[in-house]
């Protein structure tokens, strides 16, 4: 077996079509996960003990198990649950008509929520208590302190971590091919199987992932420079 270099280009062009789905599977869970992360962090630094325990367990469990488990458990578990609800309430929903991508998005949203919660928490911890005290002293209320003092600094501090999670989730979407999604890896697998040229197809897919990752990192560097501009001016 020798490498068919022209085929890498053919596969490359074919796999490019899978980028929109890959980005959808990356960005939607991250956006939902960010909101879950905010909520969970708020619970975890709050005072209600029982839900705090639940929130801590959620974060620890989702960070402690592979993402493939989350996808598979939702993919196999949710239809069973929905079926029973549909049966019980006699709803006009057919479970097998729900697109699989929705299950993937839901599962990855929960995964992202757990990771975001840790990122937001460490970002908040990086804001010194003196600043919060100062904000209260000048008469801000808790909401203003959170919005004007804590969150902007916490987010600026979290940019490298957020970049890591964005890149991490771009790569995690490759698991979705195991539940027959034609994102980049899935598309590569189809091109490979059709032409029996696996190595070439996966080289093309690897290059595409690599390029998207480099682009994300470039954008992140740019944003970080902007977001942290206040730090350099203070020195």
């Amino acid at each position: 077996m020798t490498i068919d270099f022209p085929f890498i280009w053919t596969a490359f062009k074919e796999i490019l079509k899978a980028i929109p789905l890959t980005l959808l599977l990356t960005i939607t869970p991250l956006a939902i996960g960010f909101l879950i992360g905010l909520l969970v962090t708020w619970i975890r630094i709050g005072k209600a003990r029982l839900i705090r325990l639940i929130a801590n367990f959620y974060v620890s469990f989702f960070r402690g198990t592979p993402a493939i488990m989350h996808i598979m458990i939702i993919y196999f578990g949710l239809p069973i649950l929905i079926n029973q609800l549909v049966h019980y309430f006699e709803l006009p929903i057919e479970t097998n008509k729900i697109p699989i991508s929705l299950f993937v998005i839901l599962a990855l949203s929960f995964t992202a929520g757990a990771y975001f919660s840790e990122i937001i928490r460490s970002g908040i911890a990086s804001v010194t208590t003196g600043q919060i005290e100062a904000a209260y002293t000048v008469g801000m209320n808790t909401y203003q302190v959170a919005k004007r003092i804590i969150l902007p600094q916490a987010l600026a501090q979290s940019i490298p971590n957020i970049t890591n999670i964005v890149v991490g989730f771009l790569h995690t979407t490759s698991i979705a091919f195991l539940v027959s999604q034609t994102e980049i890896t899935g598309a590569a697998n189809i091109v490979a199987s059709k032409n029996l040229k696996f190595l070439e197809a996966f080289i093309a897919a690897g290059i595409i992932y690599w390029l998207i990752t480099l682009m994300i990192e470039m954008i992140s560097h740019f944003i970080e420079k902007k977001a942290k501009s206040y730090i350099s001016s203070a020195l």
């Binding site: 077996m1 490759s174 190595l199 996966f202 080289i203 690897g206 690599w210 990752t213």
Partner: peptide
Amino acid sequence: ISFIRGTPIIIQLFLVYYGLPALFNL
């Protein structure tokens, strides 16, 4: 380092699994 950090582990797995035999075949 950039390539490893830029690609999913599953792609790396496939590249080694299909690539290494092709390489040694030479």
